[in-house]
Design a protein around this nucleic acid. Structure first.
Lengths: 199, 199
DNA sequence: TCAAGAAACGGAGGCACCTCCGATTATCTT
DNA sequence: AAGATAATCGGAGGTGCCTCCGTTTCTTGA
């Protein structure tokens, strides 16, 4: 069975290779969150239990690693939307997801600089990821509207706007609390005047 | 004679210190222009004939050094405006100065990244320097208009606009030649319809 | 199951960053 | 003029970055 398969989309990785790769991404996510974009790559390799050479083979530059970690976290965040929707009332799922969004942003603030470099080099990444986030939000809102637990005259872009305000807010010590309160407030506003609240 | 002089504006530097400082700035300007923002600081110290410690005492971070070099070059560029005005016909001075502006921009392109970091940290620097440049340009244009060697209905902001286009132009190999041609063209346009050309 | 070849590992090595502090001046005081 | 004082010099040293390549481990096919 001679099959032409030259454009192998992504070569299967060897078992040890993919194990190491995952380990590195996991540790890197933690380190970037804790130490920001200047986390030591050697430290990451050490904690992942691999040599520095292995890290560099998988991620030729710091930005490659940042990109992969960033993508991974967006995926997790978006997957959480569906997870939450399955196990909660739609409005609760939406509220909880927005709170997680705050946490997600919090982790990103430390690495703002690396992300900007990445943005310059490959802005397509951001088009993808922001699309994913918008679509997750859309699904949650649609479900909550359909269910009558939030008002029906809301537009995704309004919510996005509010959430992006969180990102650009000044980096005070109480940033996180304030952001969480903002999300609660937003949620109250969405519930007010809903079919359910009127019933 | 007990005099209160606590707010000494800028402590006089010791002779050797200021000598070293100047040497460092000079070498750094050359290195940044040649190698871009990633020029080695140790290399700069070595070429300046001082220890690395001396460099770091004068300029605690790479960005400090970049900022000083940047400021210095803007000052030189603006001083050149007056110099040129004294020794040339006003229109010639203007033309020559714009050509020097191209060279100045060329040197900046390599260090775009460092400049952006600097911009985030201290955007006041840019307000200052762009003001200085605008005012130098204004002086040259005024003189040429008064002299009748360029048309009188020109606005500084139009010329600035054209010059800033040079900065944002794509970084092709012939960027410099194209920019110089653009400046010539601009100059022809300015001369056309001037009092002198009509006479 | 085993051997050969492919792929991945990992750390030594070279360079740059930046800090720290004893040695070395320049400037001030008497 | 010569010592006292304060500022400056300069490089050793610890850390991180990244490359290179000999060694180890996985996969495959017989």
């Amino acid at each position: 069975m001679k099959e032409a398969k030259p454009p192998a989309p992504a070569k299967r990785l060897r078992a040890d290779a993919s194990r190491n790769r995952e380990k590195l991404i996991g540790i890197a996510a933690i380190e970037f969150a804790e130490r920001g974009g200047s986390a030591s790559l050697e430290e990451i390799a050490r904690k992942a239990g691999v040599g520095i050479g292995t890290l560099y083979r998988h991620f030729p530059t710091r930005e490659h690693l940042v990109e992969v970690v960033y993508r991974r976290e967006v995926e997790v965040l978006c997957a959480a939307a569906d997870e939450l929707a399955q196990h909660n009332a739609p409005d609760v799922a939406l509220a909880e997801w927005m709170q997680r969004f705050v946490d997600y942003i919090a982790a990103k603030r430390g690495m703002a600089n690396s992300l900007r470099i990445l943005f310059d080099a490959n802005s397509e990444v951001f088009a993808n990821t922001s699309g994913m986030i918008a679509s997750a939000l859309q699904r949650l809102v649609d479900a909550a509207v359909a269910d009558g637990s939030i008002r029906s005259d809301v537009d995704i872009s309004d919510i996005s706007q509010a959430l992006s305000g969180i990102y650009s807010a000044p980096d005070t010590p109480d940033w996180r609390d304030r952001s969480r309160r903002l999300v609660s407030l937003l949620m109250d506003g969405l519930r007010w005047g809903s079919a359910r609240s009127r019933r």
